[in-house]
């Protein structure tokens, strides 16, 4: 039994941490070891993508640094300029490791960019539908339903077949594929939130519709949206890689992971596996880590599962 002396009271009594929503969120999230692994992997991948030019042994797109004699080397071979091709080299003598670092930049960039744009579009449509109701809502949601009844890859294929090639066209196709998911999620949540008393209270105070919509309704619709957004970034990255692999995605000037894999396709049959294998592993790790984080976020942010 500890007796509390008046003069030491302040130091000896442990201060209970204040239970803020953020702290609770962090504790809940950290409850799953798998999610922590996913988060660490994801942070590492993002860091690599951000500083790729600084940590890559070679700039794979600077022709002065390439030597065709170093082409198609096995993983671990020594290169002419004095460094090692840890993951081998491709037919042009590019270091695969550097190629992957640069590819991650492009893949992540396109994935995140398209998701952010789709989020903005879907959010506006969903909020508008839920807030106005009636015919506008019926029409918007029918459009969402119809679009979601077509597979993402088909929609992207149609758009790119009609629009042609180019980075912005790929992003446009990815936005078109994704926005409906956001719109549906936002509308579903907003419909529930709309009926709650705080909205009524805000309207009674005479606040403008716009203010109620963006300052009151929107923040409360965010949690499920964050979950959808994580999953959608993973989808977007996978879809972009697929489209680029098929040769209808990003142009050769933006060598994403999908293009690197496609590039190694022809060498695969002669046993040179590394050109396709390692970029694929990088792609897989990226998608798995995002999905692991997304899975845990869904559990943590799901109000039905909250204790």
């Amino acid at each position: 039994m500890a007796t509390i002396l008046p003069n030491t009271a302040l130091e000896s009594v442990p201060v209970a941490p204040v239970e803020t929503p953020w702290r609770r969120f962090v504790t809940d999230f950290m409850a799953s070891p798998l999610a922590i692994v996913g988060l660490i992997m994801l942070v590492a991948i993002i860091a690599i993508a951000l500083v790729a030019p600084l940590i890559s042994p070679q700039n794979p797109y600077d022709l002065n640094q390439l030597d065709i004699l170093d082409g198609n080397l096995k993983p671990g071979s020594k290169a002419g300029p004095g460094y090692t091709f840890w993951l081998g080299s491709d037919d042009q003598g590019r270091d695969m490791l550097s190629g992957i670092f640069y590819g991650l930049r492009i893949s992540l960039g396109v994935g995140v960019m398209s998701s952010v744009l789709a989020l903005a579009l879907g959010l506006s449509v969903g909020l508008l539908a839920a807030y106005t109701g009636g015919r506008v809502e019926g029409f918007l949601m029918r459009v969402v339903d119809i679009q979601l009844s077509f597979p993402a890859i088909l929609v992207a294929l149609i758009l790119l077949a009609v629009l042609g090639e180019g980075t912005w066209k790929v992003i446009a196709a990815l936005v078109t594929v994704q926005w409906a998911y956001y719109a549906r999620t936002v509308r579903g949540t907003a419909l529930v939130e709309r009926r709650k008393e705080y909205i009524e209270a805000a309207l009674c105070l005479g606040l403008s519709h716009r203010r109620v919509m963006f300052r009151h309704l929107l923040p409360n619709c965010l949690p499920p949206l964050i979950v959808v957004a994580t999953v959608q970034v993973a989808h977007a990255i996978a879809l972009e890689a697929t489209l680029s692999f098929l040769g209808i995605g990003l142009p050769i000037t933006s060598p994403s992971l999908g293009l690197l894999i496609a590039n190694g396709f022809e060498y695969l049959l002669s046993g040179k596996y590394w050109i396709s294998f390692f970029p694929g592993v990088a792609l897989l790790l990226t998608i798995v880590s995002i999905n692991l984080v997304g899975d845990q976020l869904r559990d943590v942010l799901n109000p039905r599962l909250q204790k």
Binding site: A234, A238, A241, T242, L246, G264, L268, G280, L284, I287
Partner: peptide, 9 residues
């Protein structure tokens, strides 16, 4: 999470 085309390869 597995990209179909890569698994195919």
């Amino acid at each position: 999470s597995l990209p179909t085309f890569w698994v195919g390869l």
